[in-house]
Computed example of a mutant assay.
Amino acid sequence: MVELLTARGCDVIATVGDGDGLLAAVATHAPDVAVVDIRMPPTHTDEGIRAAIQLRAAHPGVGVLVFSQHAEPAWAARLLAGEASGIGYLLKERVSATADFIEALHRVAAGGVALDPEIVSRMFNTGSRPLDRLTERERVVLDLMAQGHSNRSIAELLVISERAVEKHAASIFTKFDLPPTAADNRRVKAVVAYLQESKP
């Protein structure tokens, strides 16, 4: 991982082996983003996600990109339950797609969100009520939103106008009961609302 990041022009300022080390390193170095494995010592279960949640609470300005061997919407929900910005959840297999991984890392460091397509797919296949309200096109738009695409990018991918994307997004927000806010981060909240319903 260190070699991959360094080769792509990233500065790796610390590496750690457990949650306590992660929190200490972030407090010392104040990085733009921390890359965290969900499974860390001593039990290799959920220490990483718990450390990531603590990190977000103590250092909300630090981006967190977590990795997991499996697509677990409940873990993503735990991470996204707070301020849903500067957050990423990727499957470890995505590291092999170096360009995508680095793009996601930069997006999270800049305050954006990067959700693995498999996580989004799991969300859409559970039959949860909010998703049942969406049309097929709205599901596709939300899928692309969850992957971090802008309205312009979605319009280009679906070969429709940006205005059409805006209308689909507005409909999604309405069906998810997400009124406008001062920060207006409904794009992220639309995904978070669904992930929260996937919690056990």
Rank of each mutant, 00 (worst) to 15 (best):
A109N: 10
G21R: 06
A58N: 07
I172M: 01
S171N: 10
T28E: 14
F124M: 13
V191D: 05
L55R: 09
I87D: 09
V64K: 15
A52D: 00
V33C: 10
G9P: 01
V159A: 14
R186C: 07
G86I: 08
V120T: 11
T174W: 05
G9R: 00
R56W: 02
L55F: 04
D184K: 03
S153I: 11
A74V: 02
W75T: 10
W75P: 00
V108F: 00
V192N: 01
C10A: 13
G112C: 02
I119S: 08
A74D: 12
A104L: 04
A51E: 07
L115H: 06
A155D: 09
R139C: 05
D100L: 15
S171I: 00
L158A: 05
A109D: 09
D37H: 06
L22M: 04
F124Q: 13
S68F: 12
Y89V: 09
Y89S: 08
D100H: 14
P179A: 02
S153T: 15
V95C: 10
E138N: 03
G48E: 06
L134Q: 06
I154E: 04
V108Y: 08
A190M: 01
I87M: 14
V192K: 01
V95F: 15
L131F: 08
E93D: 14
A84C: 00
H70M: 15
F173G: 02
D177V: 02
T6R: 11
T6M: 02
N185K: 09
L134M: 05
D18K: 06
A24N: 14
E83K: 02
G86M: 02
S128T: 10
R8F: 00
I119E: 08
R78T: 01
V64M: 14
I53F: 06
P200G: 06
I172Y: 09
A77N: 09
G111R: 06
A164Q: 10
A155N: 00
K92E: 11
T45G: 03
S68C: 14
A24P: 04
A25M: 06
P130H: 05
A24W: 11
P130Q: 05
D46C: 11
M123W: 12
A109Q: 01
R122E: 12
V120S: 00
L131K: 04
E118S: 12
A146F: 03
E72C: 13
L22F: 03
L144A: 07
A52C: 02
E103C: 13
S161E: 00
R8C: 09
S171K: 01
L157S: 14
A114Q: 01
D37G: 09
I87E: 13
A114C: 00
A51K: 03
V35E: 03
D177P: 03
V192F: 01
Q147S: 12
R186N: 00
A14V: 10
V62Y: 13
L195K: 08
A146K: 08
T98F: 11
P60A: 10
G82Y: 06
S153L: 12
A193K: 03
I53A: 08
D20R: 15
R137E: 15
R163I: 12
L134V: 05
D132E: 14
L5C: 01
D18A: 05
K167L: 13
M123D: 08
L65N: 11
T174E: 10
D18F: 01
E162H: 03
V64H: 12
R152M: 10
I53G: 07
L90T: 12
D20G: 12
Q69T: 15
Q196R: 02
F101L: 13
L115W: 05
G112T: 10
A51V: 04
